[in-house]
């Protein structure tokens, strides 16, 4: 049962990676990276039931948080060209 879910998630990962490699614009790649992160969280949750180790769920929570922060940081970099110097606030951009 869990093996079927794992295989489906691995297939999703493969298709998302194809989009990441093929994506014409850089935002397709950011979208693919975001989807890979979400599917990785699901894969961790399913693996927790396959191997019976409860600590995978904590990993999944942390990975979900990191994924969002990473996506937002990458998007800020694409939009403004840099992540901003420490002294440079929004008012003096």
């Amino acid at each position: 049962m869990f093996v079927a879910a794992t295989l489906a998630l691995l297939a999703t990962l493969a298709l998302t990676l194809v989009r990441a490699l093929k994506g014409p614009t850089v935002f397709d790649r950011a979208l693919a990276a975001n989807t890979v992160g979400t599917v990785a969280v699901l894969l961790l949750a399913v693996m927790e039931f396959l191997t019976g180790r409860p600590d995978f769920l904590d990993l999944a929570i942390v990975y979900g948080l990191l994924n969002v922060v990473g996506t937002i940081a990458v998007l800020k970099f694409f939009r403004y060209g840099d992540l901003g110097e420490p002294g440079e606030g929004p008012e003096d951009r």
Binding site: A4, L7, A8, L9, A11, T12, T16, V18, R19, L31
Partner: peptide
């Protein structure tokens, strides 16, 4: 159902 919808979403992504 979750697995199938994941794969469908990924196919749509392509």
């Amino acid at each position: 159902a979750g697995g199938v919808s994941c794969v469908l979403g990924a196919v749509g992504l392509l």
